[in-house]
Simulated scan of single mutants.
Amino acid sequence: MRTKKWLLMGGFVLLFALSGCGWFDNVSNTSAENGEDLQAYGLDLHDFSYTNQSDEVVTNEDLEGEYTLVNMIFTRCPTVCNLMTPNMSQLQEDLATEDIAANLVSFTVDPEYDSPEILKEYGDQYEADYSNWNFLTGYSLGEVEEFAESTFHSVVAPADDDEDIIHSTDIFLVDDSGQVIQRYDGLEVDTEPIMEDLRQLTENE
């Protein structure tokens, strides 16, 4: 199964140069209706030490012990990020309403531009509560490319127009031990299926 997945991913490489940051939505089989179970692939959140919107260091160890929803964005994104970030904001509101302890993390794929100050301005636009939502930067483009590939089997790459950046439009669910267990369509405005999974997971603890 894993070999087949890698062959399929390799076949998509030729598509990357032809599309912008929404490419993954077109080729992914994920759906927020039921998501895609990733546990069989043995993915985990690799070690990292990055800087958040408050210029504070955040590591993977800071997330251990709680579930975490992760996506990739950039503040100059002309299209999909303007849909994904409101969905993350809604998830944060849902989590607070139901008193479910979980983290949200948004990795910028444009780290050379997205400084902590710019990420703070961006988060403020969506009324982010930074107590459990970190917008991360403080690495090179090459580092985030490698991190996305090794952690989520997803691609980060500059688009041909030099203004867009190819990146996943999924929301990934990481469990309390750091395993990447599920992914959902980050453009889907219905957050209830994600919340349903989190309810079941946290109730079973």
Rank of each mutant, 00 (worst) to 15 (best):
Y67K: 03
Y67P: 01
T68N: 09
T68D: 07
T68M: 03
T68R: 09
T68Q: 08
L69V: 10
L69C: 09
L69R: 07
L69Y: 06
V70Y: 05
V70A: 05
V70D: 09
V70M: 07
N71I: 00
N71T: 14
N71M: 03
N71A: 09
N71E: 13
M72G: 00
M72Y: 15
M72D: 00
I73Y: 01
I73W: 01
I73E: 02
I73R: 00
I73S: 01
I73L: 05
F74T: 02
F74V: 03
F74S: 02
F74C: 02
F74R: 00
F74Q: 02
F74A: 01
F74L: 04
F74P: 05
T75Q: 04
T75D: 08
T75E: 05
T75H: 06
T75G: 04
T75R: 04
R76G: 04
R76V: 00
R76S: 14
R76L: 09
R76W: 02
C77Y: 01
C77E: 03
C77Q: 02
C77H: 02
P78K: 03
P78N: 04
P78A: 03
P78S: 03
P78G: 03
T79R: 11
T79C: 09
V80G: 05
V80K: 05
V80T: 14
V80P: 05
V80L: 08
C81E: 04
N82C: 00
N82L: 10
N82K: 12
N82V: 02
N82T: 09
L83T: 15
L83E: 15
L83V: 14
L83A: 12
T85H: 07
T85K: 05
T85A: 06
T85V: 10
P86T: 03
P86Q: 05
P86M: 08
P86C: 06
P86L: 06
N87R: 03
N87M: 04
N87E: 05
N87K: 03
N87Y: 02
M88L: 15
M88V: 08
M88Y: 11
M88E: 10
S89K: 14
S89C: 10
S89W: 11
S89N: 14
Q90W: 05
Q90H: 13
Q90N: 13
Q90V: 07
Q90T: 13
Q90Y: 08
L91T: 09
L91P: 10
L91D: 08
Q92L: 07
Q92M: 11
Q92R: 13
E93K: 14
E93V: 13
E93L: 13
E93C: 04
E93N: 14
D94R: 14
D94F: 08
D94W: 03
D94A: 14
D94L: 04
L95M: 12
L95D: 08
L95W: 11
L95I: 12
L95P: 10
A96T: 15
A96E: 15
A96Y: 13
T97G: 04
T97Y: 10
T97K: 13
T97W: 06
